[in-house]
Design a protein around this nucleic acid. Structure first.
Lengths: 212, 212
DNA sequence: TGGTTTACATACATTCATGTTTGTATATAA
DNA sequence: TTATATACAAACATGAATGTATGTAAACCA
């Protein structure tokens, strides 16, 4: 039996992405051969080359599967018109967006593995260099959203008004970016993973005029 | 002419590290062959294998040449007994330590390139995985120093006292860690590199009771 | 001043990943 | 029902990197 139905093929494709993620995590992207990925998915390299042009395209497929939904969710939390919870002041919105991302990492293995691959098992050169630009672009988008949230917070008087919203926004993004990097590096979780919740709350508290 | 004097050999070794750094930056660590490094340094692979066991050892040599002095300098700024400048309150100490690191990146090409290699042109698996643990260890050390500085700041009344020094310290470290990551990724410098100074100042201002 | 190391260069053997090409059974469309 | 496109497997050809082994001229030491 060789030829599969369309759904079977879609499953094979998904299994390849799944396998790629796991082997990437273990061996690093560049040391992972397409043969390893194929056999880990229970197929041969023929299947890989059928579904993807090469390793880079497989990598991008893996990345997008996690990052596109994630960015959407962040946007939702930060921008949605109707208030999501009782306390939906702008600062709480930012806090919730950060906490949600951490929660997603805690709950979803694929997301966690993808982050880890992206942050310490990949070299951003040649065909992979584009990712750096995408990261920067995404950065700008997120910072803008934080910024407008901080502006509103200052107008509402719940955040200190003597610092520029733009820089507050960048400070938040840099904090969170650093947290994610450490989150995946933190082997036993004692340093950062277990404290992530509290660290986010502290970060936001620092900005509140009430300071609590 | 084959055999060189001891000093010549030391020069060759240094040239190899220099060459490795540049090719790593361009091609990524794993895609860089020892042949490329050797020829870029004007020697053959024989020289590489004479001075280093393999690529990993060369990588670690490159890393240590930049990171050991850098850690020392940070410690000096944060801990030195005598006050370095007129305003050497603990918060200014932290600020200076961060600013100095950024200045070093601005001034020294080797440091800059090494950081960039370490943060986006290297896969931390197998022989390179040890670096992750070293990073975590170094992390703990730095955070402890920030922490005691924040403690002193709170006792002096120059920093808000309602947040734990430990978490303030971690917030600072995560901020700076994120900044360094973005610093190297920021292609044209418009997003983060040019603002680094101001971002650091803002980060510290947030902590001051005077808030300015 | 001769023997021994040193600091490499050169040659060799092996392994392994990649991309492409070809083969093939079957789903699917006409 | 048959022709064609699909979803792979299998075979092939190529290239490149690694580690080691060997060669060697000059520095260094006794």
């Amino acid at each position: 039996m060789v030829r599969k139905t369309k759904e079977d093929a879609a499953i094979t494709r998904q299994r390849l992405i799944h396998a790629a993620r796991e082997v990437f995590l273990l061996k690093g992207v560049s040391r992972t051969s397409l043969e390893q990925i194929a056999s880990h998915a229970g197929v041969t390299r023929g299947a890989v080359y059928w579904h993807f042009k090469n390793k880079a395209e497989l990598f991008y497929a893996m990345r997008e599967q996690v990052f596109l939904p994630l960015i959407d969710r962040m946007d939702d939390t930060l921008l949605s018109e109707q208030s999501l919870t009782v306390d939906s002041d702008p600062l709480s919105r930012i806090e919730k967006s950060l906490l949600d991302t951490i929660k997603e990492l805690d709950l979803d293995l694929a997301t966690r593995q993808t982050y880890e691959v992206m942050m310490s098992k990949c070299e951003y050169v040649d065909e992979f260099a584009d990712v750096l630009q995408e990261i920067l672009n995404n950065c700008s988008g997120i910072v803008e959203k934080y910024e407008s949230a901080y502006e509103r917070s200052q107008k509402l008087g719940i955040a200190h008004s003597n610092l520029s919203p733009k820089e507050l926004a960048m400070d938040t993004h840099l904090f969170f970016s650093g947290l994610l990097h450490m989150w995946v590096k933190d082997a036993d979780g004692s340093l950062f993973r277990n404290r992530a919740h509290s660290l986010i709350q502290t970060h936001i508290k620092l900005r509140r005029t009430s300071l609590k």
